Amino acid sequence: MKDDNKDDGISAAPMIFAPKSEGEFEKLSTAFEASFLKRKKSLPTLSGETLSHKIFDISELLNEGAQAIVDDTFTKCFKSTPQEYWNWNLYLFPMWCIGVPIRYLFLFPCRLAVLIIGFFMFFVAFTLVHFSLKDGPKRRRMERSLTEFLCAVFVASWTGVIRYHGTRPSNRMSSANKVFVANHTSMIDFIILQQVCGHAVIMQKHSGWVGLMQGTIMESIGCIQFNRTEAKDRATVAARLKEHVASRDKNPLLIFPEGTCVNNEYCVMFKKGAFDLGATVYPIAIKYNKIFVDAYWNSKRQSFSQHLLRLMTSWAVMCDVWYLDPQDKLPEESSAAFAERVQKMICDKAGIKVVPWDGMLKYYRPRPNLTEKRREEFAKNVSAMLDESESLSPKA
């Protein structure tokens, strides 16, 4: 601490919010408390209007900080919903105990066997089709059908109970000048939609066995991969999107405009790239029932393999999917306004809340100098109000 700091601690206010050691924290706290008690004696002598004004001034400052802690809707978007326990009484608890070995010792091995056998059948058939047929419409149709089969195997391995509402897309429909958009909770969103109709999806590059599948199978059905940390990928993806939408021979394009997985209770800002292609947008609303398992995938806390294991050891994965009416951009409507309109349609149907946050913020942390600058601003405001309060108090 500098030697020219005053004894009342006011000049040290910017440091009150960021003490460097426990001793410094105690010293600053003692100085600030003494300064506050000194000024408190003068407050009753102020007029009611002035006192009220000061109280509300500092209340606004405190309210901003409290709101950031209590009403942090950004953090809520990426937290798993606490599970509601149903085995809370004497006759349900024994049933739950019986159900645990059934799920882990009977259902899980059966589901794992279904997944392994399905994978084996898929890879044998896919290899034969991919290397025995020339690149053309026939091979692409067969590869798309095989990916739909593999996705159906995945859904069966969770005992998925999926209810589809509305007019489902068909593989016979032309994919030109149309794009499907949906809210995003997990990578299984793609699997659930893919088993109905083969889509080409925009996806983040992954490592491990998921990355291996992306590099072989997903590329063959026209999926577009990107790395969100590389700026050059953005221009490449934008160009490929326009090329894909203009083609009649490629699979229908599926985009998750949020760009990241959200917990199915909130919906973060839609990126406008999907709405700036001049194509008809087909909204899809996805809502998971969390009675047996929360389908939200928090990629920072668990791998996709762990996520699948959690799904496969639950009783079932329950989900509703709504295919909504296609939407076109209005004559004087901006791409951002178009994105907001479609987002509201999806959220209203799925019963989830819209928040104005950019989901990509969860991958970045503010620089330390920005945090320190904000602390200094708070400290200056408090210091100015205390100095003004002292100047208004009657002199002894």
Rank of each mutant, 00 (worst) to 15 (best):
K271Y: 05
A384N: 12
M385P: 00
K349N: 04
H184D: 03
I284F: 03
F74S: 03
I102L: 15
P44V: 09
E26Y: 14
K40Q: 15
F120A: 15
F36Y: 09
T260N: 02
I69Y: 14
I69R: 13
V321R: 03
W158T: 12
C261R: 05
N251T: 01
A316T: 07
S220A: 11
I217W: 04
A66V: 12
F190Q: 11
T167E: 15
F154P: 00
T229D: 13
H53R: 10
A113P: 08
K20N: 10
A246G: 07
A125R: 13
V317S: 07
W86K: 13
A295W: 00
G65S: 12
D3I: 10
G118D: 01
T159M: 13
I352D: 01
L112Y: 13
V317K: 03
E377R: 15
R103C: 10
K76C: 03
Q225W: 06
K395Q: 04
T236F: 11
V129P: 00
F17N: 06
W88Y: 11
K38F: 13
A246D: 14
L62W: 04
G65W: 14
F122S: 04
K54T: 07
F32D: 03
N289P: 01
G65N: 10
E84Q: 11
V293G: 02
K20Q: 13
Y91A: 11
K38W: 15
I217L: 03
K373D: 12
M187V: 08
A113C: 10
E372M: 12
E219V: 14
N298Y: 02
P326E: 01
A125E: 01
F123H: 05
E22F: 11
G48L: 10
L133N: 02
K395I: 05
E340M: 03
V100N: 01
A113F: 08
Q343R: 15
L128N: 08
H184V: 01
W96R: 09
N264R: 10
A339S: 10
I98H: 08
R234D: 03
C223R: 03
Y85I: 13
F119W: 14
T260F: 05
D3Y: 05
F149A: 12
Q83E: 15
D8W: 02
S80P: 12
F93A: 14
Y296C: 02
E372H: 09
M15P: 04
H307I: 04
Q194K: 05
Q225D: 10
L370Q: 11
L193V: 00
I162S: 02
F74T: 03
S335P: 01
N183C: 13
S21A: 05
L92T: 15
R365G: 03
A246N: 08
T229E: 07
W158I: 11
D71P: 07
N171K: 10
P19R: 03
A68Y: 14
V70Q: 06
I352N: 00
C77R: 00
M203D: 00
E33S: 14
E243S: 15
N183G: 06
Y282T: 13
D320N: 15
F149V: 06
A176G: 06
D71V: 09
L43D: 06
K178G: 02
G65V: 15
V321I: 11
H53C: 11
S42V: 05
K353C: 04
I224L: 05
L254Y: 04
P94A: 01
V124H: 01
S393H: 07
A279F: 00
R234L: 10
F275T: 02
L330M: 09
